[in-house]
Protein backbone atom coordinates (compact mmCIF):
# COMPACT_ATOMS: atom_id res chain seq x y z
CA UNK A 1 0.00 0.00 0.00
CA UNK A 2 1.41 3.36 -1.03
CA UNK A 3 -0.75 5.39 1.32
CA UNK A 4 0.02 5.09 5.01
CA UNK A 5 -2.45 4.47 7.78
CA UNK A 6 -1.67 7.92 9.16
CA UNK A 7 -2.94 9.74 6.11
CA UNK A 8 -6.21 7.75 6.22
CA UNK A 9 -6.68 8.80 9.83
CA UNK A 10 -5.99 12.47 9.02
CA UNK A 11 -8.44 12.39 6.11
CA UNK A 12 -11.13 10.92 8.36
CA UNK A 13 -10.55 13.49 11.09
CA UNK A 14 -10.69 16.39 8.63
CA UNK A 15 -13.95 15.06 7.16
CA UNK A 16 -15.61 14.78 10.56
CA UNK A 17 -14.45 18.19 11.74
CA UNK A 18 -15.25 19.92 8.44
CA UNK A 19 -18.77 18.54 8.14
CA UNK A 20 -19.47 18.95 11.85
CA UNK A 21 -18.33 22.58 11.82
CA UNK A 22 -20.66 23.30 8.91
CA UNK A 23 -23.56 21.58 10.68
CA UNK A 24 -22.91 23.62 13.84
CA UNK A 25 -22.64 26.86 11.87
CA UNK A 26 -26.22 26.33 10.69
CA UNK A 27 -27.70 24.50 13.68
CA UNK A 28 -26.60 26.86 16.46
CA UNK A 29 -28.17 30.09 15.15
CA UNK A 30 -31.21 28.29 13.75
CA UNK A 31 -31.79 26.20 16.90
CA UNK A 32 -31.50 29.24 19.17
CA UNK A 33 -33.85 31.28 16.98
CA UNK A 34 -36.38 28.43 16.90
CA UNK A 35 -36.20 28.07 20.66
CA UNK A 36 -36.52 31.80 21.27
CA UNK A 37 -39.20 32.70 18.74
CA UNK A 38 -42.30 30.50 18.31
CA UNK A 39 -42.86 32.00 14.85
CA UNK A 40 -39.45 30.80 13.66
CA UNK A 41 -40.15 27.41 15.19
CA UNK A 42 -43.47 27.21 13.36
CA UNK A 43 -41.70 27.73 10.03
CA UNK A 44 -38.87 25.21 10.44
CA UNK A 45 -40.08 22.62 12.97
CA UNK A 46 -42.16 20.42 10.62
CA UNK A 47 -39.28 20.20 8.17
CA UNK A 48 -36.66 19.49 10.83
CA UNK A 49 -38.78 16.88 12.63
CA UNK A 50 -39.52 15.00 9.42
CA UNK A 51 -35.84 14.86 8.45
CA UNK A 52 -34.89 13.49 11.83
CA UNK A 53 -36.84 10.34 11.10
CA UNK A 54 -35.17 9.74 7.74
CA UNK A 55 -32.05 7.57 8.15
CA UNK A 56 -29.19 9.58 6.72
CA UNK A 57 -27.56 6.59 4.95
CA UNK A 58 -30.68 6.22 2.80
CA UNK A 59 -29.51 9.36 1.04
CA UNK A 60 -26.17 7.87 -0.03
CA UNK A 61 -27.29 6.87 -3.55
CA UNK A 62 -28.74 10.27 -4.30
CA UNK A 63 -25.76 12.08 -2.75
CA UNK A 64 -23.42 10.07 -4.97
CA UNK A 65 -25.58 10.90 -7.98
CA UNK A 66 -25.58 14.60 -7.24
CA UNK A 67 -22.12 15.17 -5.85
CA UNK A 68 -20.05 12.54 -7.66
CA UNK A 69 -17.30 10.67 -5.86
CA UNK A 70 -15.26 13.53 -4.35
CA UNK A 71 -15.35 14.82 -0.78
CA UNK A 72 -18.77 16.44 -1.20
CA UNK A 73 -21.02 13.37 -0.78
CA UNK A 74 -19.17 12.27 2.40
CA UNK A 75 -19.42 15.72 3.93
CA UNK A 76 -23.06 15.95 2.89
CA UNK A 77 -23.92 12.63 4.55
CA UNK A 78 -22.30 13.69 7.82
CA UNK A 79 -24.00 17.05 7.58
CA UNK A 80 -27.52 15.71 7.14
CA UNK A 81 -26.78 12.93 9.62
CA UNK A 82 -26.22 15.30 12.54
CA UNK A 83 -27.75 18.66 11.74
CA UNK A 84 -31.41 17.89 12.37
CA UNK A 85 -30.72 16.30 15.74
CA UNK A 86 -28.45 19.18 16.62
CA UNK A 87 -31.11 21.75 15.72
CA UNK A 88 -33.74 19.95 17.79
CA UNK A 89 -31.49 19.58 20.83
CA UNK A 90 -30.42 23.24 20.73
CA UNK A 91 -34.01 24.40 20.25
CA UNK A 92 -35.19 22.39 23.26
CA UNK A 93 -32.35 23.64 25.45
CA UNK A 94 -33.11 27.21 24.38
CA UNK A 95 -36.76 26.81 25.36
CA UNK A 96 -35.60 25.71 28.80
CA UNK A 97 -33.88 29.02 29.53
CA UNK A 98 -35.77 30.35 32.53
CA UNK A 99 -38.47 32.87 31.71
CA UNK A 100 -37.43 35.01 34.69
CA UNK A 101 -34.05 35.68 33.07
CA UNK A 102 -35.77 36.90 29.92
CA UNK A 103 -38.24 39.01 31.88
CA UNK A 104 -35.47 40.48 34.02
CA UNK A 105 -33.64 41.62 30.90
CA UNK A 106 -36.85 43.07 29.44
CA UNK A 107 -37.53 45.08 32.60
CA UNK A 108 -33.95 46.36 32.47
CA UNK A 109 -34.87 47.86 29.11
CA UNK A 110 -33.49 45.23 26.72
CA UNK A 111 -34.98 44.78 23.25
CA UNK A 112 -36.00 41.31 22.04
CA UNK A 113 -32.81 41.07 19.98
CA UNK A 114 -30.65 42.06 22.94
CA UNK A 115 -32.40 39.51 25.13
CA UNK A 116 -31.60 36.72 22.67
CA UNK A 117 -27.99 37.80 22.09
CA UNK A 118 -27.01 38.82 25.61
CA UNK A 119 -29.13 36.60 27.84
CA UNK A 120 -30.68 33.61 26.07
CA UNK A 121 -27.59 32.68 24.05
CA UNK A 122 -25.04 32.85 26.89
CA UNK A 123 -27.50 31.06 29.18
CA UNK A 124 -27.92 28.15 26.77
CA UNK A 125 -24.31 28.00 25.54
CA UNK A 126 -23.08 25.35 28.02
CA UNK A 127 -25.96 23.08 26.97
CA UNK A 128 -25.13 23.72 23.31
CA UNK A 129 -21.57 22.52 23.91
CA UNK A 130 -22.91 19.38 25.60
CA UNK A 131 -25.24 18.75 22.65
CA UNK A 132 -22.31 19.18 20.26
CA UNK A 133 -20.28 16.70 22.27
CA UNK A 134 -23.07 14.13 22.01
CA UNK A 135 -23.64 14.67 18.32
CA UNK A 136 -19.96 14.48 17.42
CA UNK A 137 -20.09 10.80 18.38
CA UNK A 138 -22.89 10.34 15.88
CA UNK A 139 -20.82 12.14 13.22
CA UNK A 140 -18.14 9.45 13.57
CA UNK A 141 -20.73 6.76 12.89
CA UNK A 142 -21.81 8.40 9.65
CA UNK A 143 -18.22 8.98 8.64
CA UNK A 144 -17.40 5.29 8.79
CA UNK A 145 -20.57 4.42 6.87
CA UNK A 146 -19.68 6.93 4.16
CA UNK A 147 -16.12 5.68 3.92
CA UNK A 148 -17.10 2.02 3.77
CA UNK A 149 -19.74 2.54 1.12
CA UNK A 150 -18.32 5.26 -1.05
CA UNK A 151 -14.69 6.09 -0.51
CA UNK A 152 -11.17 5.00 -1.33
CA UNK A 153 -9.61 7.02 1.49
CA UNK A 154 -10.13 7.32 5.23
CA UNK A 155 -10.24 4.79 8.06
CA UNK A 156 -13.42 3.10 6.79
CA UNK A 157 -11.99 2.60 3.29
CA UNK A 158 -8.77 1.30 4.78
CA UNK A 159 -10.73 -1.34 6.69
CA UNK A 160 -12.54 -2.39 3.51
CA UNK A 161 -9.20 -2.75 1.70
CA UNK A 162 -7.90 -4.86 4.55
CA UNK A 163 -10.95 -7.10 4.29
CA UNK A 164 -10.04 -7.95 0.69
CA UNK A 165 -6.65 -9.24 1.86
CA UNK A 166 -8.14 -10.91 4.96
CA UNK A 167 -6.03 -8.70 7.23
CA UNK A 168 -8.06 -9.00 10.40
CA UNK A 169 -5.42 -7.15 12.40
CA UNK A 170 -5.76 -4.03 10.23
CA UNK A 171 -9.54 -4.10 10.47
CA UNK A 172 -9.37 -4.38 14.24
CA UNK A 173 -6.79 -1.62 14.50
CA UNK A 174 -9.11 0.57 12.41
CA UNK A 175 -11.90 -0.04 14.92
CA UNK A 176 -9.59 0.69 17.83
CA UNK A 177 -8.34 3.91 16.23
CA UNK A 178 -11.91 5.09 15.72
CA UNK A 179 -12.62 4.33 19.38
CA UNK A 180 -9.53 6.15 20.60
CA UNK A 181 -10.24 9.16 18.39
CA UNK A 182 -13.81 9.29 19.70
CA UNK A 183 -12.54 9.22 23.26
CA UNK A 184 -9.99 11.91 22.48
CA UNK A 185 -12.56 14.28 20.98
CA UNK A 186 -14.89 13.64 23.88
CA UNK A 187 -12.11 14.62 26.26
CA UNK A 188 -11.36 17.73 24.25
CA UNK A 189 -15.00 18.75 24.49
CA UNK A 190 -15.00 18.14 28.23
CA UNK A 191 -11.92 20.33 28.56
CA UNK A 192 -13.48 23.02 26.38
CA UNK A 193 -16.56 22.96 28.60
CA UNK A 194 -14.48 23.33 31.75
CA UNK A 195 -12.36 26.10 30.30
CA UNK A 196 -15.19 28.10 28.73
CA UNK A 197 -17.65 27.93 31.62
CA UNK A 198 -15.66 28.40 34.84
CA UNK A 199 -18.82 29.61 36.61
CA UNK A 200 -20.34 26.13 36.43
CA UNK A 201 -17.53 24.55 38.43
CA UNK A 202 -18.49 23.12 41.75
CA UNK A 203 -15.89 24.14 44.29
Amino acid sequence: MERGFGSDVLISISRVLGAFAMACAVAVPLGVMMGAFPSVEAIFAPFVSAWRYLPAPSFIPILLMWFGTGEAPKLALLFIGVIFFLITLIMDHTKNVRQELVETALTLGASRATVVMKVVFPAVLPDIVVAMRQMLAMAWTYLVIAEIVASTTGIGAMMMRARRFLKTDEILSGIIVIGVLGLLFDLLFAMLHRWAFPYLRKN
Binding site: E103, T104, T107, K118
Partner: peptide, 28 residues
Amino acid sequence: GPGQDRGMVFQAYTSFDWMSVRKNVEFG
Protein backbone atom coordinates in the same frame (compact mmCIF):
# COMPACT_ATOMS: atom_id res chain seq x y z
CA GLY B 1 -44.69 46.81 27.56
CA PRO B 2 -41.65 46.51 29.80
CA GLY B 3 -39.10 49.29 30.04
CA GLN B 4 -36.09 50.64 31.88
CA ASP B 5 -38.30 52.97 33.97
CA ARG B 6 -39.79 50.01 35.87
CA GLY B 7 -37.19 47.62 37.24
CA MET B 8 -38.32 44.29 38.61
CA VAL B 9 -36.91 41.86 41.16
CA PHE B 10 -38.36 38.35 41.09
CA GLN B 11 -38.74 35.70 43.78
CA ALA B 12 -36.66 33.24 41.76
CA TYR B 13 -32.95 33.98 41.45
CA THR B 14 -32.30 35.88 38.25
CA SER B 15 -28.58 36.47 38.37
CA PHE B 16 -26.86 35.97 35.04
CA ASP B 17 -24.58 33.13 36.09
CA TRP B 18 -21.99 33.69 33.37
CA MET B 19 -21.16 37.19 34.61
CA SER B 20 -19.44 38.36 37.78
CA VAL B 21 -21.50 40.30 40.32
CA ARG B 22 -20.05 43.53 38.91
CA LYS B 23 -21.00 42.65 35.31
CA ASN B 24 -24.46 41.67 36.48
CA VAL B 25 -24.96 45.04 38.13
CA GLU B 26 -23.59 46.83 35.04
CA PHE B 27 -25.77 44.86 32.62
CA GLY B 28 -28.77 47.20 32.51
